Structure formats: structure tokens, C-alpha cells
Amino acid sequence: MKTKLLTAIVHKEEDLYVAECPEIGTVDQGETIEEALANLKEATQLYLEATSVLK
């Protein structure tokens, strides 16, 4: 499997942290920065698998 470095932008909206990956267009959230980043990573991986980019 190839490894690619992607950007994560995190900002706070009211009570949640929102994490975005601008290269892929995925967005997720969490109660902490770490949770938001973990959720973003999972969402991005699932998106890339679904679009066959990782295959």
C-alpha cells in the first residue's frame, strides 16, 4: 500500500472540533482534537477505499 501525506485542518465550532482534509474533501468532528483527527482519518480511509483510489 502506498502512503500519502495529507493535510488536516482543525477548528473549533461551539462545543466540537471539526477536522477537514482539503485534498480529499472529507470532514469529520469530535469532542477533542485527537478524536476529530481520528474520525477524519477513518472517514478519509473509507472514502478512498470506496472510490478505489487505494487499490
Rank of each mutant, 00 (worst) to 15 (best):
E23I: 04
A38H: 07
A50H: 13
K41F: 01
E14F: 08
G25R: 03
K2H: 13
E14T: 07
E14L: 07
A43K: 04
D28S: 15
L6Y: 15
L37T: 01
T32F: 02
M1C: 05
A8Q: 04
K41H: 13
L37C: 06
K12A: 03
L48N: 09
A19E: 10
Q45S: 09
L6G: 05
K55Q: 12
Q29P: 07
V18N: 01
K12T: 02
Q45T: 10
V18E: 02
E34V: 05
T26G: 07
T44N: 08
L37P: 11
D28T: 03
I9C: 06
T51S: 12
A50Y: 12
H11D: 12
P22K: 00
A43E: 14
E14Q: 11
K2M: 12
M1A: 09
L6S: 05
E35W: 00
L40K: 01
L48H: 10
V18D: 02
D15Y: 10
E23W: 10
Q29D: 09
T44E: 08
Y47I: 00
L6W: 06
Y17Q: 04
K55G: 12
V27F: 09
H11L: 08
E14N: 14
E13V: 03
L37K: 15
E13W: 03
E49W: 14
L40Y: 06
T32N: 03
E31L: 07
Y47N: 09
L37Y: 05
A38V: 04
V10R: 01
E20Q: 13
